[in-house]
Amino acid sequence: MAAVAGRVVPSYTQVGPRGPRRYLGLTAAYLGQYLRSRLEYRADFLSGVLSEVFTQAISLTFLAVLFTHVPTLAGWSRPDVYVMYAFFQLSWGLADSCAGGIWGFGERYIVRGELDRLLLRPAPPLFQLLLEGVDLESFLQVGAGLVILVWAMHAAEVHWTWWMPPLIALWTCAGAAIFIGVFLALTCAAFWVDGRTGVMPLVYNTTAYGRYPVTIYGRWLRLLFSYLLPFAFVAFYPAAALLRPTAYLAWGLGALPAAAATAAVAGLVWTRGLRRYQGTGS
């Protein structure tokens, strides 16, 4: 139940199904509404695909040119680094396709007071926030990541086993949870501070560090990206676990507790922030 300014909102009469079925129904309703508005602009989708393919090609070109001069990067070959890149894209794509509400949160929900609307509705506000920000075009990045992953694993001569597909799906979700958790926790600063702090874009830029073997960084950065902003668990550790399971499988599985911890911290910050929210009076 939503808490407004420290008080609990009086209970309401629940209609329709309860439990998980209720949330599935709500998700379907939100997505249906989203698709209806998007299908008005079908040409958008094609140019979205094209610009996505193009952007990926540019990033891969950088790596390809780099590896024409050296055989390995900190002991990892070109296909190995492509696998890391692919994991990054998978998780980023999944996170980005439902983080639209997070990027403009301070501006839209706090300054303009739209959070009032979410709080008045009989569903958890965070659930609504994520669903309102759904952008399925970003889901193209997941598709791109998957194509690159399959191709890079083939090039890296990794043999598929039965446990890989479910584990890759799990890692993708864990990575997305890490991204969403970190940025949700940061965006909650809007509950305490007026105006932009500039921390979000800064951390956004550091995410790219997660695409490369974390061993290339100095000691402090390695600790930072493993424990404080655990972006290394999004791409490097899962990829390393696939490529060199004997050395890295434990680290790769560490992505799950890392994601859980990030989500827990973000959830805590979010509830603390909600308690402070007083609306704009509009």
């Binding site: 001069h69 932009r196 500039g198 490369y212």
Partner: peptide, 27 residues
């Protein structure tokens, strides 16, 4: 006022990222 320091920090992050990649390349 955010503009005063955000630019330097942002570009330091950019340069830093490529610095570490190239440092590993040159190892």
């Amino acid at each position: 006022r955010l503009n005063y320091w955000s630019g330097v920090l942002t570009y330091t992050v950019y340069i830093g990222g490529y610095y570490y990649i190239w440092r590993a390349v040159y190892a």
